[in-house]
Amino acid sequence: MQRPYLKIDHVSRSFQRGSTSTEVLKDVTLTIDKGEYVSIIGHSGCGKSTLLNMIAGLLPVSTGAILLEDREVNAPGPDRAVVFQNHSLLPWLTVYDNVKLAVDKVFSGARSKAERHDWTMHNLDLVQMSHARDRRPSEISGGMKQRVGIARALCMEPKVLLLDEPFGALDALTRAHLQDSVMQIHASLGNTVIMITHDVDEAVLLSDRIVMLSNGPSAVVGEVLDVDLARPRKRLDLVANPQYIRARESVLRFLYERHRFVEAA
């Protein structure tokens, strides 16, 4: 039997605060294949970000294990690049230098100076940001910052690309643009992507599989939905697609019927 690419094996996570301990995630098991685009969706506070941070290695798991290509994940590293929700670009570096920092760090021994420059520019081209290479993060728009954040993650050639609500802080039009960009990049590079989102349309449009988490505390994987829509997907064509509508409906049903967010009511 073929070994899974990324395996999240009975992972639980609890946070200690004084003498009380709250379990955020309970017994989460998932396997993700190479090249797959998986979304994790759930109400806020259900532990989506905790799960992503554990895959990134930024948080240790309490019990269970995360295996990437049969190797246990226990520290952050460039093979699991993260696109952070609030872009997290370093404000004192230009767009170019932000990406170059990652390129220099990851390929310091393997590539020459000229190759590293070309690779930086290539990744900026990929997200259509090479025109703003000399600007600082404070001088570009939110969508552009997120593009640079994606370029910074892509340039590390990660085994898994982790997107933490990458479009959450953007307006609807910019978000649609960036979703299209991410789809294109995924189609051409074939990355394995795990994306946290709370947007149902976004999840259905982009993913091969949608993992729905139940409400916390002690959130579990409630349901996993396969999205069998052919790629490349076109936003406008999908609006009337019965498969799309069905997928969308089942996610909505999960979120609003079976796991209604109590505090929001």
Partner: peptide
């Protein structure tokens, strides 16, 4: 120093001097 920058440094595996 915002936690975000520390996270970026952790993902990039910057050493103490860097």
């Amino acid at each position: 120093i915002p936690q975000d920058y520390r996270n970026v440094a952790a993902v990039l595996r910057l050493n103490a001097f860097e």
